[in-house]
């Protein structure tokens, strides 16, 4: 038997590692992967809450998040391919045609 907070803290850690990856990673594919990790962290929180509340909706939310993640991945990877075609690099620091 485990307190719910263990699952939630794990989910928070995953989420935060994703946030960190978003800032640290230099190539756009890895940045995107970090975002996926964040979504996974959220999914764990949803399922944990669903279990604790004895409510099925948390499960459904995860389902929808996956659907969204799939659509996002298709578009995101297409964008990455288009960028690499135009720029020949994956490094996010080289994405500097426009000054920030």
């Amino acid at each position: 038997m485990i307190p719910l907070s263990y699952y939630l803290i794990l989910s928070a850690i995953l989420f935060c590692i994703g946030v960190a990856g978003f800032f640290f990673k230099r190539d756009i594919v890895s940045i995107f992967i970090s975002i996926e990790l964040m979504l996974n962290g959220v999914n764990l929180a949803f399922v944990a809450f669903s279990h604790a509340l004895h409510s099925i909706s948390g499960n459904l939310f995860v389902f929808f998040v996956m659907v969204v993640a799939a659509a996002e991945a298709a578009v995101g990877l297409a964008i990455i391919i288009a960028v690499v075609r135009a720029r020949q690099t994956l490094n996010v620091d080289r994405m500097d045609l426009m000054k920030l």
């Binding site: 038997m1 907070s5 939630l8 803290i9 928070a12 279990h51 604790a52």
Partner: peptide, 14 residues
């Protein structure tokens, strides 16, 4: 986050 979770859900068993 961890602080909140530990405080709010530390007693809910799974």
């Amino acid at each position: 986050l961890a602080g909140f979770f530990a405080a709010a859900f530390g007693a809910t068993p799974v």
